[in-house]
Computed example of a mutant assay.
Amino acid sequence: MPDARRVHDCLINVHFGDEQQAEYMHRVKNEYFKRADSIFDPWDMASVLDEMDANGVERAVLTADVRKPGGSPYKFVEARPDRFSLALGGLDLLKPMPTLRTLQSMVADYPVTSANVGPAFWGDGRYNPEDAVYFPLYTKCAELELPLCMNTGLPGPPIPGEAQNPIYLDRVCVRFPELKLCMIHGADPWWDTAIRLLGKYPNLRLMTSAWAPKYLPESLLHFMRTRGKTKVIFASDAPVLSITRTVGEATKLYLPPEVMDNYLYGNAEAFFFQKVGGSA
């Protein structure tokens, strides 16, 4: 396969160096990803842009906490809104009205690509996506035409993960067909369920963030080459997996050129960056 010519990296974490990370994040770095180096140092924007340019990355989506608007992700997008946008997390779904007011305000004030929620990462993992606690967020995202990204698959950190079984999105897609919904961080060990859902619902996508492309299952690659050409979106989850590593591995996958371009660029462009009517 030829090297990538254009890429959107739809999830990186420039906020890691802003403050001390939770103990479980250090455990997942050491025990799950086997990283001996530090991935929690502050990020230099010029260095990030250099790595993006070296790998053909036109735009990177930065995870950001709505409760911490002064952090690195906000500084990056204020400096270079042409290259960076935000994926807004830290949403308190048990206090929906102030949370949704904050979300709507930030969508108005910043370049925002998505809202992000990890069902395993709050409420002790007890609220799966079918729970009514999510319904105000689903409604607001549909109203704003704002894609919603939800973690699927067992998480790396040692926390309860059953709520991230993608089967819980089945009923969500039925109830909210207007909602642009993307599974993120793959779907292990429920890949087949995720693939079946992708084929079933037009509004659903899957992002391979936090997965080294060389380890993606053949069932997913087959889906990408056949019925799922528009369904799967690239992301690195840097610095957990670097932009350079993931783009490099992605370009070596056995994918036809059109499918490769869709995976690295076109699917994200259509799903995240084009509004109704076709304008970006």
Rank of each mutant, 00 (worst) to 15 (best):
Glu218Gln: 13
Ser236Ile: 02
Ala238Gly: 14
Lys229Glu: 15
Ala238Asn: 15
Lys200Val: 01
Tyr215Cys: 04
Leu220His: 04
Thr208Trp: 12
Ala212Cys: 08
Ala210Glu: 11
Met207Asn: 14
Met207Gly: 05
Lys229Pro: 00
Ala238Lys: 07
Ala238Ile: 04
Tyr201Asn: 13
Thr230Cys: 05
Leu206Ser: 06
Pro239Gly: 07
Met207Ser: 14
Lys231Gln: 13
Arg227Trp: 06
Phe234His: 02
Val232Phe: 13
Pro202Asn: 13
Pro217Phe: 10
Ser209Asp: 04
Pro213Gln: 12
Pro239Ser: 10
Lys214Trp: 07
Ala235Val: 02
Ala210Gly: 01
Thr208Ser: 14
Ala235Trp: 01
Val240Met: 14
Leu216Trp: 08
Ser209Asn: 04
Lys231Val: 00
Gly228Phe: 08
Pro217Asn: 11
Met207Leu: 07
Ala212Gln: 13
Lys231Leu: 06
Leu216Ser: 08
Ile233Tyr: 01
Leu220Met: 11
His222Lys: 13
Gly228Cys: 09
Ser236Val: 04
Arg205Ala: 00
Val232Lys: 11
Ile233Val: 15
Ala235Gly: 05
Ile233Ala: 01
Ala210Cys: 13
Pro217Gly: 09
Tyr201Cys: 06
Asn203Gly: 02
Asn203Cys: 06
Phe234Tyr: 14
Val232Glu: 10
Lys231Ser: 12
Thr208Leu: 08
Ser219Ile: 03
Ala235Ser: 15
Glu218Tyr: 04
Val232Tyr: 11
Asp237Cys: 05
